[in-house]
């Protein structure tokens, strides 16, 4: 049975080894940036010590797992958490029977009594929490079976389901939970959190680097922190960290240089298939990610004022088709070539 690793006092060597994303995982609800709504509601439950079943959903790296872990810590404190919280995620075997069995065993374990000290410091509500992280990768049969289990044990347990895609959670299950939507982080709050990491690690940086990191990470704070850490490593000059520049951030993030995107679009607009063919071939051999190309072409063309609305709508269609095919696992080279040759008919 997997329980939560309570990271109490980290030894210095340990914290040196931990990637920053783990090192700066929010320790309590106040550390969670930007998700004001969820945090406010959850804080109230801390006072009333009553918790509904919950469903957290939103894109990667927005704080879903962190929030529930922080909540659990604030509810039970470090001693009790092991016996009160069960975490199951997609890496665990989650067939119907196994989930039911694990939940049953866990729910039936008698709750250990909190010590007087814990009681004084933490709410220690009388129920247990079962976290089903990455619930979107459970089969719908397993999800159906979960409904009953949730009802059977609702007296003593609360469930928290976490997923990226809410549409993959079956309705009857979703409707039993209060839903919390986690938004991409792109506001001042997220910037402050990133600045906190950067300052604590004494990251030497050019102006605008943090804003840039946040923008490229597209609201994914985990990605942003990883970028920042890698950039710091790359700028290590002996023990001194040289100043991190905006340019090196772009490099690390795999953003395709504007010049390359420009070359592709120009080749497409020139309507010369021979030239288009070689240009695409070159770009693909450079290894640029097609998804990245797609999103940058999108940004460039859809915001281009010189294009007519009907052109733009046709462009969107082509982009959409390409995106769909790529996510079905189609060949990047063929798809990017098709994208640009279709664009040559529109531009």
């Amino acid at each position: 049975m997997s329980s939560i690793l309570t990271q109490t006092s980290e030894t210095p060597s340990e914290s040196q080894h931990t990637p920053w994303v783990e090192k700066y995982r929010p320790k309590n609800l106040d550390d969670v940036a930007s998700q004001d709504h969820a945090v406010a509601v959850l804080k109230k439950t801390l006072q009333s010590a009553n918790l509904p079943h919950m469903l957290f959903y939103g894109p990667p790296g927005t704080g879903k797992t962190s929030t529930v872990l922080a909540l659990a810590k604030e509810l039970y404190g470090p001693n009790l958490i092991k016996s009160r919280v069960l975490e199951l995620n997609a890496s665990d075997e989650r067939g119907i029977l196994i989930v039911r069995q694990k939940v049953k065993t866990f729910a039936r374990l008698t709750v250990s009594n909190p010590s007087a000290d814990d009681l004084a410091r933490y709410p220690c509500p009388p129920y247990k929490i079962i976290i089903l992280d990455e619930a979107d990768s459970m089969t719908s049969d397993a999800q159906s079976a979960l409904r009953r289990t949730m009802e059977t044990y609702s007296g003593v347990t609360r469930f928290c389901l976490i997923c990226n895609y809410i549409t993959r959670i079956i309705d009857p299950l979703a409707s039993r939970c209060s839903k919390f939507r986690f938004r991409p982080l792109d506001d001042a709050n997220a910037l402050a959190r990133l600045a906190h990491v950067a300052d604590t690690e004494r990251v030497n940086r050019e102006a605008g680097v943090l804003e840039q990191v946040l923008r490229i990470a597209n609201g994914d704070l985990r990605k942003a922190i990883t970028f920042l850490q890698s950039a710091t490593r790359l700028h290590l000059d002996g023990d001194e960290v040289a100043e991190i520049t905006n340019k090196s951030i772009l490099e690390i993030a795999g953003v395709v240089p504007d010049e390359v995107i420009g070359r592709l679009i120009a080749a497409s607009a020139a309507k010369d298939m021979e030239k288009l063919f070689t240009t695409v071939n070159d770009v693909m051999l450079e290894g640029w990610s097609s998804v990245q190309i797609l999103s940058q072409v999108h940004d460039l063309l859809i915001l281009d004022d010189s294009l007519q609305p009907d052109q733009k709508s046709r462009i969107s269609r082509v982009l959409f088709e390409t995106d769909k095919r790529l996510s079905a696992g189609a060949d990047e080279h063929v798809q990017v070539l098709n994208l640009l040759s279709q664009l040559s008919l529109i531009l």
Partner: peptide, 30 residues
Amino acid sequence: RRTMEKYSGNIRLVLLSNTTSNIIPPIKSR
């Protein structure tokens, strides 16, 4: 997804691949 976070103390993954379009976003994020 969660394995990469939970075991980050003793495991580092290196994924080798020709493309990134078949890799799901939560993995790329990690």
